[in-house]
C-alpha cells in the first residue's frame, strides 16, 4: 500500500509498486490530462510535479512517490481559474494538436516557480525534455516570457497586468 498526496488529497494505491506513476494517475485516479508519449522518459508528455519539481512519470515507479506530493495539470489550474501560464497559452494560441501541452505547461510552471524571470537559456534548459511534434516551440517561449514580463511588472508596480 503506497500513500501519497495527489493534488493535495491523500490517496493510496495497493497495486504493483512498479507501476509507473503516470498509469496510476490515469488508470486508477482517472486524471487523464497527463499523457503517454514514449514510455521511456524521452518526450515529457507525462510531466507532473513531484514536491514541486517537474518529473517524467512514465518511468517513475509509484513506490518512489510514497509520502510525497504529486501535482498534475488538473490542479495547476482549471478552465475557470487558470494558472497564469495557462492564460498565456490561450492568449498566444500555443496549442496545435495539444497532446504534449499538459507536459509543456507543467515543465514551464516548475521552472517559473524557481526562476520567475527566465532567460532564453533558462527556457531551453527547462523545456528541452518536452517534445512538441507540431512545433509550437516559438509560441511556448513567447508565452513563458510574457508571464515573466507580467510578473516582473507586478513586482515593480504592485499591479497585475492581467
Amino acid at each position: 500500500m503506497i500513500s501519497f498526496l495527489l493534488n493535495n488529497t491523500e490517496v493510496t494505491f495497493d497495486g504493483d509498486p512498479d507501476t509507473p506513476l503516470l498509469w496510476v494517475v490515469r488508470d486508477n485516479f482517472k486524471l487523464k490530462g497527463s499523457k503517454f508519449g514514449c514510455g521511456a522518459g524521452l518526450c515529457g508528455a507525462c510531466t507532473m510535479h513531484l514536491d514541486g519539481a517537474a518529473i517524467k512519470t512514465c518511468v517513475l515507479p509509484v513506490a518512489a512517490v510514497a509520502g510525497k506530493a504529486v501535482t498534475t495539470i488538473e490542479a495547476l489550474g482549471t478552465p475557470d481559474a487558470m494558472h497564469p501560464l495557462q492564460t498565456a497559452w490561450v492568449e498566444y494560441n500555443v496549442p496545435q494538436c495539444g497532446y504534449c501541452q499538459s507536459g509543456q505547461i507543467m515543465a514551464a510552471a516548475a521552472m517559473m516557480a524557481n526562476v520567475p524571470n527566465p532567460t532564453d537559456d533558462d527556457i531551453d534548459r527547462a523545456m528541452t525534455g518536452n517534445i512538441c511534434r507540431c512545433g509550437c516551440y516559438p509560441r511556448i517561449r513567447e508565452a513563458i516570457l510574457s508571464v515573466a514580463a507580467s510578473l516582473a511588472h507586478e513586482a515593480v508596480t504592485g499591479e497585475s497586468t492581467s
Binding site: 488508470d27 482517472k30 487523464k32 490530462g33 497527463s34 499523457k35 503517454f36 498534475t72 495539470i73 488538473e74 489550474g77 482549471t78 478552465p79 487558470m82 495557462q86 497559452w89 490561450v90 492568449e91 494560441n93 500555443v94 496549442p95 495539444g98 497532446y99 501541452q101 499538459s102 505547461i105
Partner: peptide, 21 residues
C-alpha cells in the same frame, strides 16, 4: 482570434482517443 480548442488544450481537459475509459 483564439482557437476554439486553445482553452481545453491548455488545461488538460481536451479529450483524445487515449483518454477514453
Amino acid at each position: 482570434f483564439t482557437r476554439v480548442d486553445a482553452l481545453v488544450k491548455s488545461t488538460g481537459v481536451a479529450q483524445f482517443g487515449i483518454d477514453i475509459d
